[in-house]
Design a protein around this nucleic acid. Structure first.
Length: 292
DNA sequence: AATAATGGCAACCGCTCTTGG
DNA sequence: CCCAAGAGCGGTTGCCATTAT
């Protein structure tokens, strides 16, 4: 069976998603759905492969994504399901509302698998434990001497997903809520849009976002400019976009966005976030798409 | 303080499956 | 039934942060 390349590699962006791209994707899908992933990037004005867009949406931007640490129950369920289903991550994910196959896969490989393997001890595993023990001792010693810093450390340790994009990590107040990362901000935006149907997961998520942001805010006690939150996309991105069939400006007009030229934007971060929240809240039909 | 090793997560790659003409 | 396109899935890699030496 012949297989066409999933996308034209040339001229497409790769790597971490920028906040602009996240928002563009979220807004487009909320308004139009995703009937055709392959065509979506062009229609949404994104220089991304369709697969990349799909992955980003499925794993991080969907409104119903549950973030935060896995509970003991969830981990136990994963272990049980893995025993029954093997590496069928999507099937396992189907049993864990709000969790994605990618997330479960990562958790399995980085946490659960190791924990299970600890049953059959090898010398190096003993070493590792010894090392961990030493680290714990050091940590405890530090705790005794540095209580204030510890509060922040703990919040970060216990909420790893809330700083899931360390590369983009920043803390920003929107006036309505506080976002900690690009991913979180997008998720929170989605949650806001989905307000009427807010689930306990989403509430939990919002609480967690608020919690970590508080800690980060306390730690940093700094404010960020719009340019810091939405760093300018490199020139090649925008110049490439200019030659697209449908330019970004046209796309923005069609979508009601104002992202065609982020460099020219003099709006503040708060204004930007309020704009997006307003935009999403006004898109009344979005809620119907939140179950995608 | 500097460097190396490790952990953890997001994203990509390439294969299989599904669907429509 | 055949074929191609698109979607979905699982494995793997790359990169950054943290920890150890």
């Amino acid at each position: 069976m012949g297989r066409a390349p999933c996308c034209e590699k040339e001229g497409l962006r790769r790597g971490a998603w920028s906040p602009e791209e996240d928002q563009r994707l979220v807004v487009y899908i909320q308004q139009n759905g995703h009937p055709n992933w392959r065509a979506l990037p062009r229609q949404a004005g994104l220089l991304r492969c369709g697969k990349s867009c799909r992955l980003r949406w499925i794993n991080y931007l969907r409104p119903d994504i549950k973030r935060g640490n896995f509970s003991a129950d969830e981990e136990a369920l994963i272990v049980r399901l893995h025993r029954e289903l093997g590496n069928r991550w999507s099937a396992i994910a189907a049993q864990l509302p709000g969790r994605t196959d990618n997330e479960i896969k990562n958790v399995w490989h980085t946490h659960i698998k190791k924990r299970l393997e600890d049953g059959d001890d090898g010398e190096d595993k003993k070493k590792a434990r010894k090392s961990k023990l030493a680290a714990a001792k050091r940590s405890a010693a530090k705790k005794a001497t540095d209580v204030d810093a510890d509060a922040v450390d703990n919040s970060e340790q216990h909420q790893p997903f809330l700083t899931a994009s360390p590369r983009l990590s920043s803390s920003v107040s929107s006036g309505m809520t506080t976002f900690s990362t690009a991913t979180d901000s997008a998720a929170a935006v989605s949650s806001s849009a989905d307000n009427a149907a807010t689930t306990s997961h989403q509430q939990e998520q919002q609480q967690q976002v608020g919690a970590i942001s508080k800690a980060e805010t306390m730690e940093m006690e700094t404010s960020f400019s719009a340019a810091e939150l939405f760093p300018p996309i490199d020139d090649s991105f925008w110049s490439s976009a200019d030659v697209m069939d449908m330019g970004l400006a046209a796309m923005d007009e069609e979508l009601g966005l104002g992202l065609a030229d982020p460099l020219s934007s003099s709006s503040t971060r708060d204004e930007d976030m309020e704009f997006w929240l307003k935009m999403l809240l006004e898109a009344g039909d979005m809620r119907d798409l939140s179950v995608l």
